[in-house]
Design a protein around this nucleic acid. Structure first.
Length: 417
DNA sequence: TCTGGGGTCCTAGGACCC
DNA sequence: TCTGGGGTCCTAGGACCC
């Protein structure tokens, strides 16, 4: 692709209030009404509900207080995935350079498409129209020279809008905007910056972390300051595969006994390792996270030479890490949540692993033991592939308050492996 | 106001090697 | 023997995003 980084050819496309918009699409009687997807928690709110201050992450009770007429609707998770995929296909018609960064948003670089389809702003308009006509959903698009600018532009464009930032207007566009609009500036950083008198992106761009001493240096790294100064070298890359796979489970502290650790980890390892095997991958680094009753959490990790994808091996490694950390503590803590994550992923196609015969009476070398575990796992995988996930359960894993989140929602959050 | 799950990236320190 | 620089890998924690 020719280097046209001086042109505004990056698009950031972002579906508006995605889950809520889908619900309104599926049930026309919900259109124009304040609705929230979810129940105990608001997963997404329609713009009609947002006007009352309702937003994602808020408890259902709080949302009802703010907006008495709020309608809660159950999530049609399969439809979210299907419609979002449909939208991505449309985006892919404009250019092969599409980087999907979540279920409902993506970066595009249309530098190579200009001759075919016209200027970027026109491409963006066409895409918006097609998504509206063919899928029925509103989508906002920002067009600029860099990913950071395009992302901010799409936020400014919402709802259902298009904002183009010409290269010569970047500084004027950026400077007055609140820092909180920047990618990577959340509530914590925004609060710290506020205390330093930094409120706008322009303020941050004008600041020098070294000159301001270590306070600013610790608050924001050089990367963030560079972004504020409009220095963003990141390219649009085709969506890659996930770099890690994990699973977690929260449970009432009252249940958190040492005895619970093993079954919970077994259940988590079963999910993680199963996904790894399905994707033909394995990981060298195993990380566990332990959250305590006071919501503080710690992580412990271990990196091994040969990548892991068997359920039992992963369970054992995780258990060693968790118990090692817990036993080192002065008092046995109440555990609130356990998580397993596997990273440092490598390819491990099925045919690469030897299937070993189980000869009765023969001692089993460690490597062979893992081979045996692997073939057992593959058998379980095969049964599940035919008869569904629940056909074979991991021993005693379904008990103990594990697995609160609906499976559909969980699958939605899983990234492409 | 404290729901829950799956991810990424950044920073910093230490070990180790050249 | 001491000093120093640079690169890579690992570990841990934290913030953030959807």
């Amino acid at each position: 692709m020719p280097d046209r980084r001086h042109d505004a050819t990056i698009l950031h496309a972002d579906l508006d209030a995605f889950y809520a918009s889908v619900e309104q699409l599926l049930d026309p009687s919900l259109r124009g009404l304040p609705i929230a997807v979810g129940g105990g928690v608001v997963l997404a709110a329609s713009y009609e509900a947002k006007r009352f201050g309702v937003h994602g992450g808020m408890s259902g009770r709080r949302a009802r207080e703010l907006c008495p007429g709020l309608r809660f609707v159950g999530g049609h998770f399969r439809e979210y995935q299907r419609l979002a995929d449909q939208v991505m296909t449309i985006l892919g018609d404009a250019t092969p350079h599409v980087q999907r960064i979540s279920i409902d948003e993506a970066f595009l670089d249309v530098a190579g498409s200009v001759r075919l389809f016209g200027p970027p702003a026109e491409i963006a308009s066409q895409l918006r129209r097609r998504v509206r006509d063919e899928v029925g959903l509103p989508i906002s698009i920002g067009v600029a020279r860099t990913k950071h600018l395009a992302k901010i532009a799409s936020q400014v464009a919402k709802p259902d809008g298009l904002v183009v930032v010409p290269p010569e207007e970047e500084r004027a566009f950026l400077d007055p905007l609140p820092v909180g609009l920047m990618w990577g500036v959340g509530p914590v950083t925004r609060e710290r910056l506020e205390r330093l008198g930094i409120r706008t992106i322009g303020d941050l761009a004008a600041s020098d972390p070294r000159a301001m001493g270590s306070v600013l240096g610790r608050t924001v790294g050089p990367k963030l300051v560079a972004l504020a100064a409009n220095d963003d070298p990141r390219r649009v890359r085709r969506s890659g595969r996930a770099g890690s796979v994990g699973a977690q489970s929260a449970f009432p502290a009252a249940l958190a006994t040492r005895e619970l650790v093993r079954p919970v980890l077994g259940h988590l390892a079963d999910r993680v390792a199963g996904r790894l095997r399905t994707a033909g991958r394995a990981g060298r680094t195993v990380t566990v996270r332990i959250r305590f009753a006071d919501l503080r959490s710690i992580t412990r990790s271990s990196t091994v030479a040969s990548a892991v994808s068997t359920t039992l091996t992963l369970t054992e490694m995780a258990e060693r890490l968790v118990l090692g950390a817990v036993d080192a503590m002065a008092v046995t803590p109440s555990i609130n949540l356990l998580a397993i994550s596997v990273s440092n992923l490598v390819e491990q196609p099925a045919h690469q692993t030897r299937l070993l015969l189980d000869l009765p009476g023969e001692p089993i070398a460690p490597a062979e033991a893992d081979g045996r575990r692997w073939s057992v796992d593959r058998s379980v995988d095969a049964i599940r592939a035919r008869f569904g996930r629940r056909a074979v359960g991991y021993a005693s894993a379904e008990r103990g308050g594990v697995g609160h989140a609906p499976d559909d929602f969980r699958e939605l959050a899983e990234h492409e492996l």
